[in-house]
Design a binder for these strands. Structure first.
Lengths: 258, 258
DNA sequence: TCTTGCAGCTCGTCTAGACGTCCTCTACTC
DNA sequence: GAGTAGAGGACGTCTAGACGAGCTGCAAGA
């Protein structure tokens, strides 16, 4: 592997030059996904710098999300997570009618084993943004359904649904197992025929808790999708807040030009 | 401001405890957007640690995107960028008919002064993913239109459009100024009436180049939106690749439940 | 009054070393 | 042959100091 040398005339500091060398080694293909980078000791020797300087170079690549450090083993080029494409019609009735919740239908198609864990169901006062989206009065409470989705035992998404208690009470929505077709099937059984969803998409760095639940390495942002479901009378019946590891997802939306 | 002390019995390393103290000071409101954090020297004295340890604590908050360091001035709580909500109908014909490109119409509504700079127009072979989206043959070339959008002189988005040369050649699309209504108005004039768009959304950490062009501090991810425009005969006529500072945007999509 | 230079603060970078924990591999023991 | 202890290599954390460069305010001089 060709690493080059530090140019003391170059205005850029050594640690940045080292980071650049490593970055281009990855881009060139000298280092491929899963490969180990030169150890800190090797970099220290090769460039004649202090160990902290070599570490700083590696830190650059870590916050860019390009490499992952493993204590006691080394630093490795990030293995790109298999990308999941989410079509905008993934909540369409046709999928639900087959008796499958959206996540199961999806996993089925991708050939992975879907699991759901960390299911927590509570009744609580809604956070302000949820209350606004559900158009609730100040004292109205909601059903909160939080869970984590896994594909082949690797966590890929955490989601929290909020439904007005008036809608959810007495249905399987408040059970750990919502039954065939999931929440949306139960909603339609109670007469709330779904008309459309509004999804709000943004991205940010994860909180420490999200990083733990999604088992994210440093430098990986999350996609946040807040979906509000409306029934045919225009009433919002569910807000679902999902957090996904960003590089593992592509969200696809079809928009009429009208 | 209450900072607390390091608990040497706590399993967590000192730098992480210091980071937690600072983080909760921000969350509590002791430190607000724009406020200066205690200097490295102050942290060093208060906690009786080496300067590098105090720096490491601050580094944590930087990669989380919560604070910004300014050389010679101090470290400040990140000023949250004003959020721009992008509705899914922002490219609808009704806006275009008013003679405004989408970005201008938007800026107008938000009350900011829109600018476009770094305009580069070239003819080139398309990158593989663009060629696939535009369904081009191996030797077909494209018009490439790259530009940067600014609101009140602050860069907010860089975008690159790709159009088949067969479509773009001889139109204002290849001029710096595309004229009233922008690219889409020109496309419809040449007979390519737009039918729908497909937007693919994902997020990641920015490249060094993107960080420079968007003037992003450390720890801020970008939203990547790739939009493909189809005309009424189902032919893809444009691929537009946009990169935006993630925390400054919320993308909104309306999805029928069908 | 205005300008300018500098002191003293800030963060940025680097050095050279210490000790800790985690992981892997090897060689030894049973 | 299987199991295990240990060595050594890897990253994680910390120290104590150095010098550099950007910023700001104040004091001295024009």
């Amino acid at each position: 592997m060709q690493l080059g040398e530090i140019d003391r005339q170059d205005g850029r500091p050594p640690y940045r030059q080292i980071a650049d060398h490593l970055r281009s080694a990855i881009d060139r293909g000298d280092l491929r996904a899963g490969d180990r980078l030169p150890s800190e000791a090797e970099l220290t020797r090769h460039y004649s710098v202090a160990r902290m300087t070599a570490r700083q170079a590696i830190q650059e690549l870590r916050t860019e999300g390009r490499v992952v450090a493993e204590h006691g083993r080394g630093v490795f080029v990030r293995m790109p997570a298999p990308v999941r494409r989410l079509a905008s019609d993934r909540f369409a009735r046709k999928h639900r009618d087959a008796g499958q919740a959206a996540f199961l239908a999806e996993a089925d198609k991708a050939g992975v084993r879907p699991t759901v864990d960390q299911i927590e169901i509570t009744r609580a006062a809604p956070p302000p943004d949820v209350r606004e989206r559900l158009r609730l009065s100040d004292d109205e409470r909601v059903a909160v359904r939080s869970r984590r989705y896994l594909a082949d035992d690797r966590p890929i998404e955490v989601a929290t649904s909020f439904l007005p208690l008036a809608v959810a009470e007495g249905t399987a929505i408040l059970e750990a197992n919502t039954g065939p077709g999931g929440i949306y099937a139960r909603l339609e059984e109670t007469g709330h025929i779904l008309d459309h969803f509004i999804e709000e998409v943004t991205a940010r760095m994860p909180t420490a808790d999200e990083r733990r639940r999604l088992e994210l390495p440093d430098g990986v942002p999350v996609l946040v999708v807040v979906r509000t479901a409306y029934d045919t009378s225009g009433v919002p019946v569910e807000v679902c807040d999902t957090v996904k590891a960003a590089p593992a997802y592509v969200l696809e939306y079809d928009i009429p030009a009208r």
